[in-house]
Each structure stands twice: as C-alpha cells, then as structure tokens.
Design a protein around this nucleic acid. Sequence first.
DNA 1: ACTCTGTCTCAAGACGCC
DNA 2: TTAATTGAGACAGAGT
DNA 3: GGCGTCC
Length: 335
Amino acid sequence: MGIKGLTSLHLMGFFYRTIRMVENGIKPLYVFDGKPPELKAGVLSKRLALRKEAQEEGEEAKETGTAEDVDRFARRTVKVTREHNEECRRLLGLMGIPFVVVYAAGSEDMDTLTFHAPVLLRHLTFSEARKTPISEINLDKALEGLEMNMSQFIELCILLGCDYLEPIKGVGPKSALKLIREHGNLGAVIEHLREKTAAKEDAAKDEDGKKKKGGIVVPEEWPWEEAKKFFEHPDVTPAKDVEVDWTSPDVEGLVQFLVTEKGFNEDRVRKGADKLSKFLNTKQQGRLDGFFTAKPKTEPKKGKETEKGKKGTKRKADDKDKKDAGSSKKSKTKK
DNA sequence: ACTCTGTCTCAAGACGCC
DNA sequence: TTAATTGAGACAGAGT
DNA sequence: GGCGTCC
C-alpha cells in the first residue's frame, strides 16, 4: 500500500529551497542543530508521551480514516535520521553551499537579538503560500522604539524569560517592560520585587493564616547577572574561525548523487545546478524582492511596542454560558 | 478591567498546469 | 543507535 | 488558487 518512493523528500526540499533562495540573492548558510540541551529533558519526555498518543491515534486513523488522513499522518511522522542529515550535508557540499554544525542553538526571537544580530527575519520557513507575512525586526529600531539601550534590552529579555533561567511567574511582557522602565535596570527591579515580597511575608506572618502568596516572587536562585554575561559574551566560535565559502556546484557530482542514486530527473538537476552557478558567480544580486509576495505591514510603529502583532487578542465577548468549555482535554475529534 | 499563564490546535515541500 | 520540533494563534481561567 | 506530480 505504501507509496514506496518518496525517500528523498528532504533532498528535494533542500535542493529546491536553496535554489530558490539563491535565485533571489540570498546566500544561505545552513546551520545544523546538534543535540538539544539537556535542560529540556523534562519537557521532552512530556512531549514524548503526547506524541505517542498522537501516533496511536494515527495508527487508528490509518485503518478507519481516509486516504488523506493517512497521508497527512505520514507526513508528520517522517523521521529525520542521521542518514537524512548526512545526505543533506552531502547535497549541500555538492551544491557549493556551506554549513556549520552547532550544539546550542537557542535562537528564538528576541534571544537572537540579544546576541546582537542586527536583523531578525521571522517566518522565513513558511512558504509564501501561508498568509503569515515575513517580518523583519531591526535591532536598532527596536531599541529606539523601546527607548532603551542594549544593556536594558538584554535585561528585559532575561526578565521575560530566556531559555537559561526560570521565568518569574507573574511577570509578562507588560510588567517586565514597565518594571525595567521604572527602575532603569534589572538589578533594581529584582531588589524592588524582593523587598515587596518580604514585606508581604511579614504581613502574612502576623496573621498567620492569611494568604500566603506574596505577589511576584523572585526565585531564590536567579543568577541573572550570569545570564547577562552570557548574552554579552556568548560562548561561540568566532566568525573568523568559521569557514564559509560559497563555491560553484559540482554538477557531475550532483547528477551522480541525485540522478543516479536518488532517481531525480536529470534535466531538473542540471537546470538547478545552472542556476546555482549562475547566481553564485555573479556578484551582484537582486534583492529580496520577489522572494516573498509582499510585506504589507511594516513595523515603523514608533510609540512603544516593537512587537507588531500584539494587538490582536480581542476577547470573544460572546462567551455567554458556555459551560464546560475549558475541560475538553485531549478529545481529539477523530473521524 | 487588565494581565499572565496554561492548554490546545494546527501545520510544516516545491513545482507547474489548469 | 533512538527519539524527536517549531511557531503561531485561540481561548479559558486565575491572579492582581 | 486548487490540485496533481515530483521521487
């Protein structure tokens, strides 16, 4: 029953995606993620359970469901094995595209900016088909909009919860921003919060049985200063030590690999290789235009709020008497 | 009223023909 | 050698 | 734009 081919989806993806980028003036550098940090072990095991469940349901669907269901499930279940990884690297090598392997990639949103990346592009991986527009976040603009310096920005991000420290419950985007604004720096904020907590505890002590929860509590151990140092001086290989060369593709090698070994259409492969060498050789390049459809919303929203999307969240006013709305556990609507 | 958090859901390739 | 992700949005509910 | 094909 299987459609047995389809063993090269990953290569197809890399091949065509890369070509598309190159055509549009992007010189990609692939970063292969090493192992995830153990910090997340707990979370991972939790997800494992969920996934297992999902898989079981998938199995079930396989028997009762429609063809689309099966197909869909199959796509989710594709394993990325080491072979796939190696093949991808081999492919990139033949294409003349550099790549590196890293072992700690906490690269998310603002975290990335804290590492002084000047520009952050989000949603790049969403093919243009999706409605999600690509957004560009410029560090300088962001700082300007926040009226902050880099130090404050880093501290703000730490307050919001970076991957390396427990987030402080009760402090979200708004409060964090406000706190930093009011106190000027994270040290003062922490001090302030600790004092507050202490005061409440004292008050509670008198009454004994009163409410225990004293507002926002900063964890005992909260080495934010170290985190900050880490952001300022990340433990990375200096750029100059990394080899990043974009070279001409090895056409025959590609043909050998993709056509002979993987059964790709030779014309397509050669055509792709042509594009690669053409665009990689010509120094000049078109801009990003054309790679994405349009970027309707630009960010220059001065005021505060560098985060563009935030405003949404309109509560659904019509939530009348919807009784147990929230209790729907994992009731998957299966067909 | 507003803010924050937790939980859940959804989808993820690329091309080309019509 | 396996297992395993990511990001976004919506919503409900508890906290202040 | 939706849908079949690529492999």
